[in-house]
Design a protein around this nucleic acid. Structure first.
Lengths: 146, 146
DNA sequence: TATTGTTATACTCTATAACTATA
DNA sequence: TATAGTTATAGAGTATAACAATA
């Protein structure tokens, strides 16, 4: 029997609204760049300086590896990403093209632009919110059970 | 030239992680109940005591009305929702069945269960976070420009 | 005429299974 | 054998356009 503080439930409830707001903004961002959600999510997760294996991208997108083939096909067709050879010659390593990097940065800049609700908060609230969220991520280390 | 406080950008950046966490949990919740994301989202948005027009649901789901037909078909086939007649006889009013209400409440309870990162915060941080998020929603009134 | 919901169509996302080429 | 990626397939989500019923 674990006791959950009332405040935690209330926060979780409130976060649903912010989730929906973020989702709407991400969909709009993808659409404005002529990308589907998954194409945008794939681009979003390709690292800037280095490559990423197809299977790693599948893990990140939480979908089967077979789907990544088609998604990456489209990114490649648009000149946003490229498939290269890995050391292990079974592995294909994805890298962003300059165009892909530019688009990824553009999307990122837009998603990091604070939405109206955030700008309406006092500078003090913004700072406090940032600090608490940072603490939440810091303490959220991988479990070291067993 | 609008000046955006650095803190606001930092918060927006941090929120991406929490968005992804929430998304993972919603997907898992839907899957565990044998629902697709859109079916779960539809169910989630049907009000408890009252009805909702198909077109209103389409607005909420941010998709074309034509898609709602198929999604609601599946909810109806599983006995979770029903189509009824509106006063305007062009309108079909969706209502939850008792089974639909139960499932909706179950999903809601699971999504309101605080994730690990939230429980790891101090009670004080939880309270502060709640208060700031509430302020953010309060001040987020519809624009009254023009 | 305009609106609500449906149908038809075409494209995308998704998981499963079978295949290939490596290891 | 096992693994990385592809292909084939089938079910579901998506937008567009055309349609029926109603307003």
């Amino acid at each position: 029997m674990v006791r959950v503080p009332k405040e935690a439930n209330e926060v979780a409830e409130l976060l649903i609204e912010f989730y929906l707001d973020h989702k709407r903004r991400f969909h709009a961002t993808a659409k404005d760049h002529g990308l589907t959600i998954q194409q945008a999510a794939a681009l979003w997760n390709l690292p800037l300086g280095q490559g990423l294996a197809m299977s790693a991208l599948a893990d990140i997108l939480m979908c089967d590896a077979s789907n990544v083939t088609g998604i990456v096909d489209k990114l490649e067709a648009r000149g946003l990403a490229r498939r290269g050879q890995g050391e292990d010659r079974r592995v294909k390593v994805l890298t962003l093209t300059p165009e892909g990097e530019a688009l990824r940065l553009e999307m990122h800049a837009r998603m990091v632009a604070p939405p109206a609700w955030l700008l309406k908060l006092s500078r003090d609230d913004q700072r406090t919110l940032r600090d608490i969220l940072r603490r939440a991520l810091e303490t959220d280390e991988p479990d070291e059970k067993t």
